[in-house]
């Protein structure tokens, strides 16, 4: 059986729209009858990823593939990229500018939270080219 495939645009520098893709994915998973705890993990990991695309990536595209027993989320942006991925994964570390922090974002918990809730988290990034975050959440 093939999988469900969706693509969502994520607008850059638009906080009010961040979370729209994750809301659409949540709605689909509820229609599939996925357990609420799994939906919660997907929602949190994906929302954090979307916010990162808005803050750092200048927007991009969320590519979603839903299989019978898991979901794969690819968040692709063509922003400034991550210099040191290991450092970026450290809780509390953030390169967000003061004006972003003033909005309540950029606390340095985005990637650590995504790692916490995802079963697989992979990051490919090249400075000046962009970042692709791959999230996999298994369903129970």
């Amino acid at each position: 059986m093939e999988n469900l495939h969706f693509e969502y645009e994520v607008a850059g520098n638009n906080f009010s729209q961040a979370g729209m893709a994750s809301d659409a994915v949540k709605s689909t998973l509820k229609k599939m009858g996925i357990a609420s705890e799994d939906i919660r993990r997907v929602a949190i990991a994906m929302y954090e990823g979307e916010i990162n695309m808005v803050i750092h990536g200048g927007g991009g595209v969320a590519v979603i593939d839903i299989f019978f027993d898991h979901i794969e989320i690819k968040l692709i942006d063509h922003g400034k990229g991550i210099e040191n991925i290991e450092l970026a994964m450290t809780p509390g570390y953030s390169t967000a500018e003061d004006e972003i922090r003033a909005l309540g974002f950029g606390a340095g918990m985005g990637l650590p939270n995504m790692k916490k809730y995802a079963d697989v988290l992979e990051i490919e990034s090249e400075v000046g080219v962009g970042t692709t975050v791959y999230i996999r959440v298994d369903f129970h």
Binding site: M1, E2, L4, S27, K31, M32, G33, I34, I66, F68
Partner: peptide
């Protein structure tokens, strides 16, 4: 309650979601 679910069976629900798309 769960009225969102398109089918009790996850596979059938996925099939229906594909048809919906």
């Amino acid at each position: 309650k769960n009225f969102d679910k398109l089918d009790e069976n996850r596979l059938s629900a996925m099939q229906k979601l594909m048809e919906v798309e």
